[in-house]
Nucleic acid binder design. Sequence first.
RNA 1: GGCGCUGUACCCAAGCGGUCUAAGGGGAAGGUCUGCAAAACCUUUAUUCGUCGGUUCGAAUCCGACCGGCGCCUCCA
Length: 469
Amino acid sequence: MLKLYNTLTKKVEEFIPIDPNEVKFYVCGPTVYDYFHIGNARSFVMADIVRRYLEYKGYKVKFVMNLTDVDDKIIKKANEEKISTTDVTDKYITAFFEDIAKLKIKKATVYPKATEHIREIVDMIETLEQKDFAYNEDGNVFYDVKHFNGYGKLSGKNIEELEIGARIDVNEEKKDPLDFALWKKAKEGEPSWDSPWGKGRPGWHIECSAMSCKHLGETFDIHAGGSDLIFPHHENEIAQSEAANGKPFVKYWLHFGFLNINEQKMSKSLGNFFTAREVVKKYSAEALRLFYSQAYYRGPLNFSEELLASAEKGLEKITNLVDKVNDELKKSNSGVKPEFDFKSFYQHFEKAMDEDLNTSQAVAVIFDFVKEVNRVIASSENVDVNFYNDVKTFLTKTAENVLGIVDFNKTTTSDDKLVGELVELLITLRTEAKQNKNYQLSDTIRDRLKELGVVLQDSKEGTSYKIGR
RNA sequence: GGCGCUGUACCCAAGCGGUCUAAGGGGAAGGUCUGCAAAACCUUUAUUCGUCGGUUCGAAUCCGACCGGCGCCUCCA
């Protein structure tokens, strides 16, 4: 029984999908004006893990992630670089897909773009206008926050306090500083579309309301995003969707904690960020995902290269076993199948994940499993290939398919047949040298190969090699 | 000012009233194996959970005060 912390109720609740056959899941995706950083990546990866775990539990998941491709920042970038806004969005949408592929994030069912849903957005604003939740001021359409009963229920804010703290808004067309733009009147040189209020473009919040409704319906199961979206973005989405549809918007709200650098939030505006693409050049995607998984998804997580390096190191413990298993499966020895309680490891893993996605606990289960398997292998002779099959099944289902921290298809031997055979030849020569007690030669072979990135490992069964991942 | 999160070993981090003389990873130390390494395995590394009080038979876990860190309230995952 999966339990999730729901920002709306501020409680951990049992997850019960509206439609038992299909979970409907929406995640706020990127504004495509730049490469995303590893703070953004944390949200994307954690949402991916939630999605994968739901699938592990047997749910079919319709997973929708929007791409915000019309926005002030995009326009600004286009002006700076003297290119069109579509040049900007095309470039960063391509980059986005490259990056999520590198991070092993499963593809969403749909990636709706704001610019391809202008019709739906205009329709929703019209509905809001008809229901008196929106007003038009000279081509700018605003949402009338005061008219929506329950504004602030997600973020725990109340309107009076917000007004006291509210900064003076430069836009004097609004009736109330809390009101926000649904439709922005076109300015010179900006992308715009025709609408009942004249040429213009959608405000930021309305796209998520319109597109989630189109792809997931008026009420759906899970809506997720970074904690900084709680207010005002998600609060505004609720106001728009519930006012327009007259129905509850979302059942479970999930929010991901920030990635900090030196205890400070990583953000574009502070400039203290690393893009996901630069990090994945130096560290593996699996290590990054392990790093995220070792912390609770809602809390802050401090980032440093040292921490990532230690995750990479810890990962080796698991990948060593993965290599060993792949090796044994190739050899396919028959022998004795050791006693091993796989079932309890599955149970522990599920118990951890069920308890509001305790991924750090789940990771601990994986490490315990690896340790236990190693112990069994070390103390048994003639281990049957079926045991390795079961080990692979466990790690595939949990560490690979849910957490995405291992990859059984990543090979540590050479892809190139010739290279593999040459290494094998050197190993044979080195073994001969060893038998002749010519350790100087055998060590030279080992050292030189290491410099080339090929690590030799001697064991009772002989020498194996590994090419740096 | 309002709302919320947070303080556990050298570092990261789980823990949600008793099974905690507190998971897991990194680091460090010793050992088994090895010609030597590497990998793997074994052992050690918090009687203590920011501080001080309280509730309780019993608290890292609940309550209060205090000290410290962070976030949101404005674009931001």
